[in-house]
């Protein structure tokens, strides 16, 4: 089997000079697929994803995008390489309009962005309606749409989402997941951390269960959902 599109290979490291939080942790996602990271609180899920994005000091292991070693690149440089990242909190410019948020997302791009912006509006029609409103005035679910939309504006090949459904209602969550599937269908790989493990694994092509900064179970989403041990320990029976 050829190497996945994006892979964080056997990463070990921590924040700055602090203790290691990740131990030999591997995360990977294929083109156009959805990979989901689940696990108990404090398992290092977000940390693992930040490691892939270059916000961590990974001293052993490597991160490769489309076969290219990007372990030493800064997060900004990874954005230029086609990685989009949606942080869990403060992921929008609250004082700016929806449209300006999207524009800022495309800041690095030299070419016209109208087309991409239209695609984002097609994906999230409500944003088009509210495009001249300050993003900070929107509801929780709409803010997450702005956040995802902003990250999509760079035309990324990989989109990384840190708990996109944190704090939104179940209905909005379902809707967001639908949108994420749609994004994946356009060929963008998705790597995301989720608290709502069961729902997330249902849409996942690949699932990673992390415990204490290391891989515990790795399989397809459906297989993990079916695994009795995973169900018992991590999905509440």
């Amino acid at each position: 089997m050829s190497e996945p599109f994006l892979i964080g290979d056997k990463m070990t490291g921590g924040y700055g000079k602090g203790p290691d939080i990740l131990h030999d942790c591997t995360l990977a996602v294929n083109k156009g697929e959805i990979a989901v990271i689940v696990g108990p609180n404090g398992a290092g899920k977000s940390t693992a994803m930040k490691a892939v994005f270059g916000m961590l000091n990974v001293h052993t292991g490597a991160v490769r995008l489309n076969g290219e070693d990007i372990t030493k690149l800064s997060p900004q440089a990874r954005v230029a390489k086609g990685m989009g990242f949606v942080p869990q909190t403060s992921n929008i410019f609250t004082s700016m309009t929806v449209e300006e948020n999207l524009e800022m997302g495309a800041f690095l791009r030299e070419d016209g962005m109208e087309e991409t912006m239209q695609q984002v509006y097609d994906l999230f029609p409500i944003l088009k309606e509210k495009r001249l409103q300050a993003a900070g005035e929107l509801s929780g679910g709409q803010r997450q749409q702005v956040a995802v939309g902003r990250a999509l504006m760079t035309k990324p090949t990989v989109l990384m989402l840190d708990e996109p459904t944190a704090g939104v209602s179940p209905i909005v969550m379902d809707e967001l997941f639908d949108r994420i599937i749609e994004v994946a269908r356009t060929g963008i790989s998705i790597l995301m951390v989720e608290q709502n493990a069961r729902q997330a694994l249902e849409i996942a092509d690949k699932g990673y269960v992390l415990v204490q900064g290391a891989n515990r179970f790795t399989d397809t989403g459906q297989a993990l959902l079916a695994d009795p041990e995973v169900r018992k320990s991590f999905l509440g029976g």
Partner: peptide, 16 residues
């Protein structure tokens, strides 16, 4: 971009 930087420095960096 200045307003974005003032609003949310980290996200501004992420946006390049």
């Amino acid at each position: 971009s200045m307003r974005a930087f003032s609003d949310n420095e980290d996200l501004a960096l992420l946006s390049g």
